[in-house]
Design a protein around this nucleic acid. Structure first.
Length: 278
DNA sequence: CTCAGTGTTCAGTG
DNA sequence: TCACTGAACACTGA
């Protein structure tokens, strides 16, 4: 569930299921990579019998606030998700089809059962995700190293312009740098730059005040919208670049008929529209 | 068989 | 320090 909107969706799901409930059963997959070598015993000790006070998110990180520390923190990598019985799993644009609606789901890394019978599962098809224990997540790495979160603490237009000033980094890699903006990934960065009409290779510090304002505005608008539709891609406006960026076959054009081009920037495929992005 | 992918991190280079 | 590139990580599906 990688980018901010999907993780926020997961937070709301987890909040609905777990807040005010006590964890009665914990099952950890045998996976030293995802758990960074921390054994199941430690997770049991930390979680069983605990009350879930709140579910928090910052950027792409999610954690449960319990009545006793430490707290479990989850990062979903490229293919992780949060599931509960009877939910509708998010369909990834890059991996269509395949029936993932069963319970228990496949690739479960952490499974929690609550005192009211509710269940929550962290699933991950691959192993780029991480599940950790932290005493004070917001004040410890990796969460304390994150930049602003566009949903929680988006800077004012003035402060945003100041963040860009003097920086020589290209604007797209900067947007995706979690120390700058927490939660922005590849498709959101491309979408924001397309809608703000800015060339992804522009040095961040070269943006005019007006361009910086436009960029900030689109960042907010696009993330707000994606969160509002629960990160369900089919509910995002049809004019968005997102829907067309992976149409590899034939003419790649936006809903407005503009030609979409692709190149690699900072190791990631970048879709953009030269005709409108300057 | 090969390649790229909603992501992050580390080594090497300038 | 900043910032870029490429590779590594792991594994599936086109």
């Amino acid at each position: 569930m990688p980018e901010l909107p999907e993780v926020e969706r997961g937070r709301r799901l987890a909040r609905a299921v777990a807040r005010g409930r006590t964890i009665v059963k914990v099952t950890c997959a045998r996976d030293a990579i995802v758990f960074e070598g921390v054994g199941a015993a430690r997770f049991h000790r930390a979680l069983v019998g605990r009350l879930v006070v709140e579910v928090r998110r910052r950027g792409k990180h999610l954690w449960l606030e319990l009545d006793r520390r430490p707290w479990p923190c989850v990062h979903f990598g490229m293919t992780g998700a949060l599931r509960t019985p009877g939910d509708t799993p998010l369909r990834l644009a890059s991996s269509p089809r395949q029936d993932d609606s069963g319970w228990p789901p496949r690739f479960v890394k952490l499974h929690l059962v609550f005192d009211d019978g509710g269940e929550l599962a962290v699933v991950n098809k691959r192993r780029f995700g991480r599940i950790r224990l932290r005493t004070d997540p917001a004040r410890e790495p990796p969460i304390c190293d994150l930049g602003f979160d566009p949903l929680l603490d988006l800077p004012s237009p003035k402060a945003f312009a100041k963040l860009l000033a003097g920086r020589t980094a290209m604007i797209k890699p900067l947007l995706m740098d979690q120390r700058f903006a927490a939660g922005v990934g590849n498709w959101i960065a491309d979408e924001v730059l397309y809608q703000a009409r800015i060339d992804p290779r522009r040095p961040a510090g070269s943006l005019s005040g007006e361009e910086a304002g436009r960029l900030r505005g689109k960042l907010k608008q696009i993330i707000d919208r994606a969160v509002a539709v629960e990160a369900i891609k089919a509910r995002l406006p049809r004019t968005w670049l997102f829907h067309r960026r992976w149409h590899r076959d034939g003419a790649e054009r936006t809903a407005r008929g503009e030609r979409i081009e692709r190149f690699t920037l900072a190791g990631r495929t970048t879709a953009w529209v030269p005709q409108v992005q300057r």
